[in-house]
Design a protein around this nucleic acid. Sequence first.
DNA 1: CATAACGGTATCCTTTTTGACACTATATGC
DNA 2: GCATATAGTGTCAAAAAGGATACCGTTATG
Lengths: 119, 119
Amino acid sequence: MPRVRHKTFDCSAGCPVEGVLNLIDGKWKGVILYHLMSGTLRFNEIRRKLINVTQRMLTNQLRELEADGLIIRKVYAEVPPKVEYSLSERGRSLEPVINALKAWGDANLALDKIDVEAA
Amino acid sequence: MPRVRHKTFDCSAGCPVEGVLNLIDGKWKGVILYHLMSGTLRFNEIRRKLINVTQRMLTNQLRELEADGLIIRKVYAEVPPKVEYSLSERGRSLEPVINALKAWGDANLALDKIDVEAA
DNA sequence: CATAACGGTATCCTTTTTGACACTATATGC
DNA sequence: GCATATAGTGTCAAAAAGGATACCGTTATG
């Protein structure tokens, strides 16, 4: 869970920044949102994209994103189970934010090591 | 400390996103960066802007930001001590990112409560 | 002499987050 | 009859993050 959730925000001017970080923070949330921007995905599809994520963690992250109204969870009454995840309107509106993050990352993060001296 | 720091980034395509999040995540980093965008600040000036931050936490966050090359710490050999913090080039380049975060937050976060239903 | 300002450290403790691992139900294919 | 796929849940433990509190040296000020 993010550090401050659904509590009054009493911090100073930079606060909206923290507010968003609280939503997209969490070890996998950023990547999940990023992948969902390309379209609807099922649970195990996401799981395969996020190697190393455990089922429990993935479930948690998805539940939190859902609770924050960023994604939509659609359960099909089938067997074997089928659950689809997609971005909500609110989630889709985050696109520029994620893109800004990705652009900066691409431009400023060496992929094997962050070399601060050379920056 | 961010969850993954200065390690190889072996995650999939959304990874730069996580990379940046790892840098600006931390309870106070976003706000610190935000405030430093308006100009150089001394330790206690930052502290006064971040009510409720403890000295230890502030020191930690500043040290991490410094280690990531986002801010510059300048110590003056005076008494009483004087230490100035300012954004590095790399830090300043984060401005569009922080602005994107802030814009979304301003537009999408109710200040007293996140109302998911109404979103 | 005592106090305050400055920019921290050191130590301890609690909370939060993440990870490992086992377990579930049902239907299908072999 | 057994394994496989799906989308989870439950429990426990470890690690990371954050918080409380006390302390440091120096100088100026009262």
